Computed example of a mutant assay.
Amino acid sequence: MAELETRELEYFIGVAEELHFGRAAARLAIAQPALSKAIRRLESRLGVTLLERSSRSVTLTPAGEALLHHGRHALNAVGAAAAKARRAADQEAHLRLVIKPGGDANLLSGILAAYACQPDARQVDILFGGATDRADHIRDGRADVALLYSPFDDLTGLDHETLAVEGRVAILPPDHRLASRAEITLADLARETLPRWKGVRWTGAPEGGEGPEVTDAAEALHMIRLGRTLAILPRSLAQPPHPDLVYRPVTDAPHSELVLAWAQNDRRPLVASFVAAALDAARTA
Rank of each mutant, 00 (worst) to 15 (best):
residue 225 R to M: 07
residue 149 Y to F: 14
residue 171 I to P: 03
residue 197 W to C: 01
residue 219 E to V: 06
residue 179 A to I: 11
residue 220 A to H: 01
residue 164 A to F: 10
residue 169 V to H: 05
residue 233 L to F: 13
residue 219 E to Y: 01
residue 220 A to M: 13
residue 243 P to E: 06
residue 237 L to T: 10
residue 226 L to C: 12
residue 214 V to I: 15
residue 228 R to E: 15
residue 242 H to N: 11
residue 189 L to G: 06
residue 189 L to V: 01
residue 171 I to Q: 01
residue 173 P to Q: 14
residue 144 D to Q: 02
residue 228 R to Q: 14
residue 195 P to N: 01
residue 241 P to M: 03
residue 203 T to K: 00
residue 155 L to V: 00
residue 170 A to Q: 10
residue 206 P to M: 09
residue 188 D to N: 04
residue 157 G to S: 07
residue 220 A to V: 09
residue 207 E to M: 14
residue 165 V to S: 15
residue 234 P to F: 02
residue 243 P to K: 06
residue 243 P to Q: 06
residue 246 V to I: 14
residue 235 R to W: 11
residue 145 V to W: 03
residue 177 R to G: 08
residue 233 L to G: 07
residue 217 A to K: 02
residue 223 M to I: 04
residue 237 L to S: 08
residue 182 A to Q: 15
residue 164 A to G: 00
residue 200 V to I: 14
residue 163 L to G: 02
residue 223 M to V: 10
residue 163 L to M: 05
residue 179 A to K: 07
residue 198 K to P: 00
residue 230 L to D: 06
residue 147 L to K: 02
residue 151 P to R: 01
residue 173 P to Y: 00
residue 155 L to N: 03
residue 236 S to A: 14
residue 204 G to I: 04
residue 201 R to M: 06
residue 188 D to F: 14
residue 149 Y to K: 11
residue 238 A to C: 07
residue 233 L to I: 01
residue 150 S to H: 15
residue 211 G to W: 03
residue 163 L to T: 11
residue 143 A to S: 08
residue 218 A to P: 02
residue 157 G to Y: 02
residue 169 V to Y: 02
residue 172 L to K: 07
residue 160 H to A: 11
residue 191 R to E: 13
residue 145 V to T: 02
residue 167 G to R: 14
residue 175 D to G: 06
residue 226 L to R: 10
residue 210 E to G: 13
residue 179 A to H: 08
residue 185 T to S: 09
residue 202 W to D: 13
residue 240 P to F: 13
residue 204 G to Y: 00
residue 181 R to G: 12
residue 166 E to M: 09
residue 165 V to C: 09
residue 227 G to H: 08
residue 242 H to P: 04
residue 231 A to R: 01
residue 148 L to K: 12
residue 167 G to T: 12
residue 203 T to Q: 00
residue 173 P to L: 11
residue 216 D to T: 12
